[in-house]
Amino acid sequence: MPRLDAVRRHEIVFSLNGAPARVEVEPRTLLTDALRHGLGMTGTHVGCEHGVCGACTVAIDGEPARACLTLAVAVEGCEVRTVEALAPEPGRLGVLQAAFRRHHALQCGFCTAGILMSLDAYLRCRPHATRAELTEVIGGHLCRCTGYAPIIAAAVEAAAVLRGESIEETPSHA
């Protein structure tokens, strides 16, 4: 491919939540900024901007990825999935989101989009994930509100719902 000039903007084409997306970026533009500023998709949050906090996690070709450690030019032709894809329609919550709500698995909500995307990617590949595995996935994220227990409870319950198992109606506050 031709070398992309540092001071120019270049069009990249990829799939975003199942629909074709185009955005013009400099080579140095991070995927977080391409999504938020270029495409107005502000569900993906920017926290530490060096890969530690996990708030910006999205799925690229089905695998979780820190959008802040991904150059936008590197996702040319890839399938990117963000938190905006989780709700089946406006006003309704996806299975993971509903479990998070039942379990009070968020307070300020800043870290939530990233955690949801990590769990979404993981459970798609491993629907029978154990509590220990889900705890490790959540360990790749920083949450300074909840103490993690309700997040883990929500993840375990969402996994069961996605497998088609029935769950207790009473929400646990972990």
Partner: peptide, 21 residues
């Protein structure tokens, strides 16, 4: 923070990458 500017080459082959470096 954001990276400083750089050019970007998505190498299609080993030879292309080695020639660039």
């Amino acid at each position: 923070m954001k990276p400083a500017r750089f050019d970007y080459l998505r190498a299609a082959s080993l030879d292309e990458a080695l020639a660039a470096i």
